[in-house]
Amino acid sequence: MTSTDKEVEWFDEEGNRVDGRKADELRETTMEVGVLEEADGSAMVEIGNTRVIASVFGPQDLHPKHLQESDRAVIKMRYNMAPFSVDDRMSPGPNRRAKEIGLVARRALEPALELEKFPTAGIDISMEVVESDGGTRVTGITAASLALADAGIPMKGMVASCAAGVVDDTPVLDVNGKEDKEGNADIPIATINRSDDDTESREEDKVTLLQMDGDLTTDQVEDCVQLAKDGCRQLYEQQKRTIREKYNATDGGDQ
């Protein structure tokens, strides 16, 4: 089932990808803030057939006490894939992959947060993958950032995250499940975004996650990073729209 067994047609005559997208196009994306009643903050992000629900509880009392830090809040990050999220049922529970993704996602979000405002406290973040078709970790980070903002945790900017990869020696944005599994390689990236969008400050876009799975040439890496950065920017704009829509809906009340 690899691309060497049977050649996959990655692009049609018009240059469209296997799901009809252009090389620099994101999948159809929907976002929603405040999807869970009981959580302090929550969000759902759907990118193509990948769907992740993120929740935030806290800042709250942290136990056991030895995990507390006297000068900042501690984040507990959980990444979990539902057994029904993939085509062949996945056995539930944490595995090596889930732990690693929880760790890198925490590190992708932490630089944006003002954790020193809550000494000794804990913040629980959970990313539940309901449906998976490539790019679950980046979708999870994008959702977790929305959930954190929804919970009222002070942040320097919104974290948006997306991946770019290479199929058939061509860099493409936001790889789907097939491109992820059978393509050459992919690079997930997360950035901290702020609204001043002149090019000067864009160069200060802080990258907080950068991984690489597969082999790429130096030029391809640079192309992918640039593509993914642009993708993050598009997701950031949508995050802002989603936040505004939630509150503008109640503008003026029901009278």
């Binding site: 302090d40 942040m155 509150y247």
Partner: peptide, 26 residues
Amino acid sequence: IYSKFIGTVKYGDDYVRVQPMDGRYI
């Protein structure tokens, strides 16, 4: 000057602040 929260902007004569929408009590 940037916002730290989801909230509403309030401009004063010589200051700016954001009234957050949500968050725990400190």
